[in-house]
């Protein structure tokens, strides 16, 4: 019965000759926390710009709350909360003044706006900071103020570009706990982009964005399930040579990523022992573990999320 909040179909976007999005299709349901994971330059920021109504979609269809984004951006804007990667706060204004200014832009004013702003600040533990100038706040508090500001007009859909940039791990945990509470209490739908594995693991569903395409989409556990068994990473003195030897001996295709060999096998610990014993002296170090979302990405894209070559 529930229509999806976000429906994207065949979205392409190019800057001149450079194609940033090459046919992106996905949907996000009401109350879902959806994360786009991908390397920098994979198209995340462009997708964010289109969804936040900063850039009109040219090719393909984007519907938010059933409205066509290209034709009726204002109908979408009222119900949308956008958290930018760059802080959008005015440093010379106080926390409260920033919130009031934001409310005015969304047509709120007077007593109703005042009490709503105070309510949001209390909810985020910023109640005693209302009169502080934003430039005097720490990075973590500014980030929280940023979120408070966006919540003033009660958005039904939050779109966030790398929201936990600049937060320490503790603050990041707190932030994602708050997002889940927001979803639970107010039924807010959340779409975020990230390059952090841990942040993506917290989402209900994850989409991988690579070279302007969605290469995989699904629940984190289901995605990790596509990797067979354990992931074994071997550093060798001569990786190319060992790759060939392993193929001959074990019939397995080890993938060379950033100078390391990666193999997916059940019972990783046994395989590590077998390799080390079969090729004495060839292995510098070996590790194995349960697959992470990054392993899924490497399997799909043949490169790490954070690669020196990128």
């Amino acid at each position: 019965m529930d229509n999806p909040v976000v429906e994207v179909e065949g979205l392409c976007y190019a800057y001149g000759d450079r194609e940033a999005l090459a046919g992106v299709t996905f949907t996000v349901s009401r109350g879902e926390i959806f994360g786009f994971l991908g390397p920098n330059g994979g198209g995340k920021t462009t997708l964010f710009k289109v969804l936040s109504t900063l850039r009109p979609p040219t090719v393909g269809r984007v519907r938010v709350f059933g409205h066509d984004l290209a034709r009726a951006p204002d109908a979408v804007r009222m119900r949308l909360g956008v958290v930018f990667q760059d802080p959008s706060l005015d440093l010379k204004l106080t926390v409260m003044e920033n919130l009031l200014h934001h409310g005015h832009l969304y047509g709120l004013w007077g007593q109703a706006l005042q009490s709503r702003a105070r309510e949001v600040l209390e909810g985020l533990g910023l109640g005693d900071r209302a009169r502080d100038l934003v430039e005097t706040l720490s990075g973590g508090l500014r980030r929280r103020t940023e979120l408070a500001k966006v919540l003033v007009h009660r958005p039904e859909l939050l779109i966030m570009d790398e929201p936990s940039t600049g937060l320490d791990p503790g603050a990041r945990q707190e932030f994602s706990a708050y997002l889940r509470r927001l979803r639970q209490q107010d039924g807010v739908t959340i779409l975020l982009t990230t390059h952090l594995i841990e942040e993506a693991e917290q989402c209900d569903r994850v989409g991988f964005l690579h070279e302007g395409r969605v290469v995989a989409i699904g629940e984190p556990d289901a995605l990790k399930g596509t990797v067979g068994g354990d992931v074994i990473v071997i550093d060798a003195h001569n990786p190319k040579e060992l790759q060939g030897k392993m193929r001959d001996r074990f019939g397995c295709d080890a993938v060379l990523v950033d100078g390391s060999l990666r193999v997916e096998r059940p019972c990783g610990h046994e395989f590590v022992r077998e390799v080390v014993e079969a090729f004495p002296g060839a292995v510098k170090s070996a590790a194995f573990g349960r697959p992470t979302l990054e392993d899924v990405f490497i399997r799909l894209a043949g490169r790490r999320l954070w690669s020196n070559e990128a």
Partner: peptide, 13 residues
């Protein structure tokens, strides 16, 4: 440059 204007541009204004 600082991002303030972006927030104004995505508002229904």
């Amino acid at each position: 440059r600082e991002g303030f204007l972006q927030a104004v541009l995505v508002a229904p204004v």
